[in-house]
């Protein structure tokens, strides 16, 4: 059982999430070549150590998250929304909550 720190909902059991695969894939444009799509879809690294993964908080806020997880220790060091605009909102929120020094 992993505990994933959802940036909106707080720490939750991984049972609330669906795994979404490798977050480091750069998807080609829709009109890119078949070769580029084959590369993106079928060829994946399997890193030992820190990795970026997509998780969807499916039974929660439904945000897609980029989760930084160590594939050896399972330690999760960070999680933020995959949507950059949403990530900006979360950052702005946490800055608003942190009293300035």
């Amino acid at each position: 059982m992993l505990r994933i720190p959802c940036p909106y909902c707080g720490p939750r059991d991984h049972a609330e999430f669906d795994y979404g695969g490798d977050a480091t894939v750069v998807w080609p444009a829709l009109d890119d070549t078949t070769e580029a799509w084959v590369e993106a879809l079928y060829f994946r690294d399997d890193p030992k150590g820190p990795h970026r993964e997509l998780w969807r908080h499916a039974r929660g806020c439904r945000l897609w998250l980029i989760v930084e997880r160590d594939t050896v220790t399972h330690e999760i060091s960070a999680a933020h929304p995959a949507h950059p605009g949403m990530a900006d909102e979360v950052t702005a929120q946490s800055q608003a909550e942190t009293p300035s020094a």
Binding site: A23, W64, H83, M86
Partner: peptide, 13 residues
């Protein structure tokens, strides 16, 4: 539904 959300949040934000 999940697929459309994935596309909207991760690929075409």
């Amino acid at each position: 539904m999940s697929w459309l959300e994935e596309l909207s949040q991760t690929r075409w934000p």
